[in-house]
Write a protein that binds this DNA or RNA. Structure first.
Lengths: 242, 242
DNA sequence: ATTTACGATATGTATGTACATAATTGTCAA
DNA sequence: TTGACAATTATGTACATACATATCGTAAAT
């Protein structure tokens, strides 16, 4: 949400833009004029105060509610959130980009590639019908020829039929999907675990050594796209700044 | 963004609500009617097609742009994003809330509490002047009496002087800070590691066992607030949905 | 050929009005 | 006292209109 856009011209910013109102409300919270938990004036009142339409105040408040700064209830009003719910934004980069951003040489290799019927264990997790065809791909990604990520991915072929013809010689499944299969819902599960025998071998660590695991499932509306388990050696760090 | 709200009454949903349009657009993307990178019809056209006002289409498209599904440019139009959704939002909950949300009993104990001059190793990381007074607190958080998180925290006393008088008998440092020390910048570093001797003892695991580590630093503008290392046993999962 | 100016156009936003919906409050009856 | 129900009210959304703003293409000027 880039709210930094300005007029560009030397002209003063609109005094009654929803952005102005948003900022003013944030200021009043910061300066403790409105305390957490407190009920603030209604849209009509604010509109009168700021000399704008109720719709404008509505948009400002709605966007503040979207990011958890205020809480709104019909018939009740708008109140400053008690615990200004903080959230960090985690970037979800393409592996290649991530490796290259660290100045390392990127390389990947496809370990296996099978078109199969969805195993029962995955069926529930991905919300697929029994016997649905899926593509199972296992990849190893390298940074400067050292194992960076072991990727074990299942792709719903019904959702992404075009991928069946892909050889993944130059473009990794990860990158292909990012470019060709949009999704609207995503679930990420981050954890630490001990490396399984397979993971240990792939990553060049010992069995049971700590590894950083990202399990991600994506959907477009209700249609499952892919489920992937990405395992990194413990030197991996996931960093986010807000 | 809870877009699941429905009418509740048996009545059919408004055919021209911005939600309906949002869903229909997502459907067309899913069904490959509109491909990634493709320019879709303008707001006017869509409004005509759906039999609604342009404002309604505008809101649908704006919200889709907010979550990265489409990209919009003036004079150019709206196109399906090539690389949709590149970030996930991770909630940063209060430990107590997090534990209680899993239906477990929350308890914490303060292991140590010292006011000292900032150690040289931390000075650079926190961008503090040499000799700055800091509060060092170590806590153990429990879920149903099982160790949940080992917290090792450093607090910049210059930024949060009020905390010096806190005993942390009922309110944990974590919670106190969330409620009393707003911050504007945050840096999170997530990783997997092998438990140190101390961490292993605290968490009731073996030394070297995988643990999930969150290291977080926060600032208010340029002023450092706190640096904390939170260590969880490997059963811990950090989940985010988008 | 290159730069500048300008018009066309799609999105961005503000506004007033109207009605829908949820939740609280007050009223009345069992 | 309690429960049911209606009135009230703040937010939620739809719509038509008007104007603002960014940017592209093109034509004119250098």
């Amino acid at each position: 949400m880039s709210d930094v856009t300005q007029t560009g011209t030397g002209a003063a910013a609109q005094p009654n833009s929803f952005r102005t109102i948003k900022t003013e409300i944030l200021r009043r919270i910061r300066d403790r004029i409105w305390q957490p938990g407190e009920l603030i004036p209604g849209e009509e009142d604010l509109a009168r105060e700021f000399g704008c339409a109720r719709m404008t105040v509505n948009r400002a408040l709605r966007e503040l509610a979207d990011i958890g700064i205020v809480e709104r209830k019909r018939r009740v009003g708008t109140r400053i959130a008690e615990h200004p719910l903080r959230e960090a934004r985690l970037e979800i980069p393409v592996v290649r980009t991530e490796v290259e951003a660290r100045g390392a040489q990127y390389r990947f290799s496809v370990l296996s590639r099978d078109e199969v019927e969805v195993p029962e264990t995955l069926r529930a997790r991905l919300e697929l019908p029994p016997g649905a065809p899926v593509l199972h791909v296992r990849c190893l990604h390298f940074a400067d020829n050292r194992p960076w990520q072991f990727e074990d991915r299942w792709i719903n072929l019904a959702a992404v039929p075009d991928i069946a013809g892909q050889s993944f010689e130059t473009v990794s499944p990860n990158e292909w999907l990012v470019r060709n299969a949009p999704f609207s819902e995503m679930e990420n599960d981050l954890s630490a675990a001990g490396a399984t025998a397979e993971e240990a071998e792939m990553l060049g660590v010992s069995r049971g050594d700590p590894v950083f695991v990202i399990e991600r499932a994506t959907w477009l509306l209700d249609q499952p796209i892919t489920l992937v388990r990405m395992v990194h050696p413990s030197s991996y760090r996931m960093i986010s700044r807000v």
